[in-house]
Nucleic acid binder design. Structure first.
Length: 975
RNA sequence: GCGGGGAUUGCCGAGUGGUCAAAGGCGCUGGACUUAGGAUCCAGUCUUUAGUAGUUCGGGAGUUCGACUCUCCCUCCCCGCACCA
């Protein structure tokens, strides 16, 4: 049986035991500090993969660690089903969308081999609940299979009736506190379904995002007072308008628009009707009817003509465009075309002189361009006509960007001169609107179609409900909460800050999707938006089980109950009376909430900072008193598979369900947690996983070789002592790293560094009695095991059991570790010896011959004194020879070595790092080398090791090496 | 554009004022084991050299006794920018 097979069996064995004994179920215990941890509940739309595993794995390591450090832990889990994606999946499955079917066949085949069974299962996905239920079950199984120490007895979904009641309560409070406001809001809208659409409702919506663009519809007055409304994204260019373009052959309509008369394209009328206007069509007309008429330009009051142009798209905004040939490439090209187009001029009977007179009007100065940027760019790109779409598109983009960010308004723009375009744009639009010369017109950023085939336009919803995150008081309190929270890693606090600053009104209800009906507009079909219903639910974990066990019905879950349980408002008598829930149940709920809350630690991926996690803070401060605000957020970056993002199209997704067999649970856990810090992108590379596997195997071999060794006190040799000391100090570093939630350093120190120490020990322990090495190894493994059990719990449980322990290691406390002075001294000696060995090796390499004798000269103690002195007086300043000589003269041990002192001082000045070191005395150095002598002798192929000390009389020193010895760096002579 | 993050030795990636020529891994080279090995183990891996010295951490300037680490400027890369979970 291979190593992996062996540990896979062990993993299953312990998962079964944990499950059977329900050891991770959170139970109230007032004798221990509680620690309530949450990770965002998954949205069950498909299988979870290695990327999710990274996040939950880190959560589990933290949780297990806390549990093993004496905390009473609760880590519950639930599922999110609110929103539209699941609906969209079901719709496609029901409508036999082949690519969706295939996608879900692939998903189900992760868990199921039987082809028929797969088809049957996918067929059930026509019902949204079935999708959610199926994947929720799979995900929780995957998690348990990863050994995550979750309490799965407190599960619920956001579609549960009990949960709906809880959310209704939440929104009641938000409403009471005036944090919900109403207003108009533009959204993407299917004209067939008469409904809002999300990304997954739009054809190719995931590949090319559709956005809402806000145009300024500028009203150009005709002689009869009717407005020809031209839409633009660049209202500031109104000063450069030379004429208006319309499509001569297209259909336009004169409409009664609120209290005005407008002319816009037929298509525009239809769109405007959905944008909160009162509209009646007065008459239909062809574009050409308008040609040659004149309109008045707002602000400038110039009269300009209307000309025909084929490039005008009547299905884009109003289908009317005003021409700014100086700054708009399309306009310039169309103007040039028209001026040379005899046929059109004749057809529409255009006034030739008037047309010839039209010259671009420049109104913006922009660095890198002359007076007429559009003219310039058209010439540069070789635009031939207005049909040169590709080049014109490019020119338009370029000029838009350059002028927007670095353009300045010219003299001829009156009060706006000198303004940056970026600013002028808004100021001018505002001014136009104030004077009733412009109106907002919304358009999609690209032509888009619903999956039903109908066109998607922008509609303006009236009386839309918003969460008013812009509310000053609310924001202020949220900041207060943020400031008192622990954000891990700390660097992400800034992202929260920026998010808070930027947060403003946010629509919180939708017309579509699963979820909780909005309580303020019952019966109107408004559903609470999915990110807004998942922000305080951690509180719900503390009561759901009690609700279920006592068979409390959803309708009994009235606001007054939650007020009492969560906010300690009202009286139990009143609650009992209005809800008919027993006193015991209410007390139990309240007790449970008050015991577990607040949420001490919430871990997730960084993508949630700018939405979910920020909202969580906002809603907590709105609903709960300060003592119940979330204590800490912990975050991790995402994951790549061999340098690439995992995606269905690349076929490189590793589902969690494949992990146990493809790798092994503990191997995956170890590698995920140790290969990258939480705040860096983790690149999962097979060759590196392989390394982790070899190390894990090595650990397993060391460990299993000593599980039967008896514990006893024995006299330890020098290498054994060094090993114990270094393992001890590594474990200490490891625990310290976890204080800062640095899991990577935790594992590096506790596992990888210690394994190397053991490797080194084994190499030099050939002549140490097996009884001693076994005992030492067992002691060390036992300690490592405990510290490592949050990371590789299965293997550690097994070893723990083989070492005849009754209790689960998962429930065994990791003790504090202290590093004694003795440990430190051993560590320094070990370092000293390593350096010595390296020095010898280096010299051997250089001389390219095998030495028969190795003379080691250990420095005199006065040199240590000199180093100490230098460290003291040159702590924060440059080495000064005069100063050190003066000081040294005062010290008796040094004053008789002044010649040498001056030589060393020169060295120190050149390289101050030589004395800024931790040292051991020369006698300690000597002892260390003595202890190591035999090992050195063996390592260097039987070379005789001769130790000399500078303090005593050096018997043999032909090259006068002893003088060169320095603290921690003995001089060498190889012969 | 705004906001954030980043640029380290062949590659990936630690390191945030001094034991740093810079952890660890990958790759490569040599050795061991072996019928074989794309397995495993051991060692080496900037240049130079009796353990020394020199040149490095995107480019440029500065602060400091001392900078990969701090400040400023520049170049390039990645991520977020709202109703989407």
């Amino acid at each position: 049986m291979t190593f992996l097979d062996e540990i896979r069996q062990i993993e299953k064995k312990w998962q079964k035991k944990w499950q059977k004994d329900q050891i991770f179920v959170g139970k109230i215990d007032h004798s221990r500090p509680k620690w309530f941890v949450t990770l965002p509940y998954p949205y069950a739309q498909g299988p979870f993969h290695l990327g999710h595993a990274r996040t939950y794995n880190l959560g589990d390591v933290f949780t297990r660690f806390k549990r093993q450090r004496g905390n009473n832990v609760l880590w519950p889990m639930a599922f999110h089903i609110t929103g539209t994606p699941v609906l969209s999946v079901s719709w496609k499955i029901k409508n036999k969308d082949e690519s969706e079917w295939q996608k879900y066949r692939d998903y189900v085949s992760i868990y199921e081999d039987d082809k028929e069974k797969i088809e049957e299962t996918v067929a059930t996905f026509g019902e949204p609940e079935n999708v959610a239920t199926y994947f929720a079950n799979k995900i929780i199984n995957d998690f348990l299979r990863m050994g995550f120490s979750i309490d799965e007895t407190k599960q619920f979904t956001t579609g549960d009736l009990e949960y709906n009641k809880f959310i209704e309560w939440q929104y009641g409070i938000l409403n009471e506190k005036n944090l919900i406001t109403k207003g108009n809001y533009p959204i993407l809208w299917c004209i067939n379904d008469k409904n809002a659409v999300g990304e997954d409702d739009i054809k190719d919506g995931d590949e090319s995002k559709v956005e809402v663009n806000e145009f300024v519809g500028i009203k150009f007055a005709l002689d009869n007072g009717v407005f020809l409304v031209a839409a633009t994204l660049r209202p500031e260019t109104i000063f450069g308008a030379t004429n208006v373009w319309i499509h001569p052959e297209a259909n336009y309509e004169e409409i009664k628009m609120d209290n005005e008369r407008w002319i816009v394209s037929e298509e525009a009328t239809m769109k405007l009707m959905e944008q909160d206007h009162k509209i009646a069509v007065l008459r239909k007309l062809k574009g050409k009817e308008l040609v040659n008429q004149e309109v008045i330009v707002p602000i400038t009051r110039l009269k300009i003509p209307i000309y025909p142009a084929a490039f005008v798209d009547t299905d884009h905004a109003t289908g009317v465009v005003y021409s700014v040939p100086a700054h708009a490439p399309y306009d310039y090209a169309a103007l040039v075309d028209l001026q040379r187009d005899e046929e059109t001029i004749n057809d529409y009977n255009l006034n030739r002189d008037r047309l010839e007179d039209i010259k671009p009007i420049s109104l913006i100065t922009v660095k890198g361009y002359g007076v007429f940027p559009a003219v310039e760019l058209c010439e540069k790109l070789g635009v031939k006509s207005q049909n040169d779409k590709e080049k014109l598109e490019k020119a338009t983009q370029t000029i838009y960007k350059d002028e927007f960010y670095s353009g300045i308004m010219k003299e001829n723009t009156g009060e706006f001169k000198g303004l940056k375009v970026e600013k002028a744009k808004d100021v001018i639009a505002d001014k136009l609107r104030e004077n009733n010369l412009a109106a907002e017109i919304y358009e999609t950023s690209r032509e888009a179609f619903c999956r039903c085939g109908a066109q998607i336009i922008v509609a303006v919803l009236q009386e839309q409900y918003f969460l008013n995150y812009g509310d000053e008081k609310w924001k202020e309190t949220a900041f207060k909460a943020l400031n008192s929270m622990n954000i891990i890693p700390e660097k992400y606090r800034l992202t929260f800050k920026n998010t808070f600053d930027w947060l403003d009104k946010r629509p919180c209800v939708r017309k579509r999707g699963l979820g909780t009906e909005f309580p303020l507009t019952k019966g109107e079909g408004w559903i609470i938006e999915s990110l807004s219903d998942s922000v305080i639910y951690m509180a719900f974990y503390t009561v759901i089980q009690i609700i279920r066990e006592n068979q409390i019905k959803p309708e009994q879950l009235k606001p007054e109950l939650f007020d009492f349980v969560f906010l300690n408002k009202g009286s139990i008598e009143n609650v009992m009376e209005s809800t008919a829930i027993s006193e015991d149940s209410i007390k139990e709920m309240k007790g449970s909430f008050e015991y577990w809350y607040p949420n001490d630690f919430r871990h997730t991926a960084i993508t949630h900072i700018s939405n979910h996690l920020s909202f969580t803070i906002f809603h907590h401060v709105a609903i709960f008193p300060e003592k119940y605000w979330v204590k800490a957020f912990s975050l991790n970056e995402n994951l790549l598979n061999n340098g690439e993002a995992m995606s269905k199209s690349k076929g490189n997704v590793i589902p969690i369900a494949h992990i146990p067999e493809k790798y092994s649970v503990d191997l995956t856990r170890l590698h995920l947690a140790s290969v990258a810090t939480a705040d860096s992108v983790l690149d999962w590379r097979e060759s590196e996983v392989n390394y982790a596997q070899l190390r894990l195997k090595r650990f397993w071999e060391y460990a299993t070789s000593v599980t039967n060794v008896e514990k006893k006190e024995i006299e330890l040799s020098f290498p054994s002592k060094i090993l114990e000391s270094s393992v001890n100090s590594n474990l200490k570093k490891s625990l310290d790293a976890m204080e800062n939630y640095n899991v990577r350093d935790y594992i590096l120190n506790a596992f990888f560094t210690n394994l190397r120490a053991i490797d080194d020990y084994v190499k030099l322990s050939e002549h140490i009695p097996k009884e001693e090495t076994d005992t030492v190894l067992r002691n060390i493994i036992e300690k490592m095991m405990l510290v490592m059990s949050p990371v590789i719990p299965h293997l550690c449980e097994e070893l723990h059991e083989r070492m005849k322990n009754e209790q689960y290691i998962s429930l065994t406390e990791i003790p504090d570790i202290t590093v004694s002075e003795e440990d430190k001294a051993y560590a320094l000696q070990a370092k000293y010896l390593t350096n010595l060995q390296e020095d010898i090796e280096q010299v051997i390499k250089l001389v390219k011959s095998t030495p028969k004798k190795i003379h080691i000269y250990i420095n005199a103690e006065w040199k240590n004194k000199l180093y100490d002195l230098a460290q003291r007086i040159f702590k924060d300043e440059a080495v000064n020879i005069g100063k050190i000589m003066t000081e040294a003269k005062q010290v008796s041990d040094l004053s008789n070595h002044m010649k040498d002192v001056s030589d060393i001082a020169k060295l120190m000045m050149k390289d101050p790092s030589i004395f800024r070191i931790e040292m051991i005395s020369s006698s300690q150095q000597q002892r260390a080398v003595e202890e190591y002598k035999e090992f050195l002798n063996r390592t260097f192929k039987g070379a005789e090791i001769i130790i000399h000390t500078e303090d005593q009389k050096v018997s043999y020193d032909p090259q006068n090496k002893a003088r060169k010895s320095r603290p921690m760096k003995p001089a060498l002579l190889l012969e």
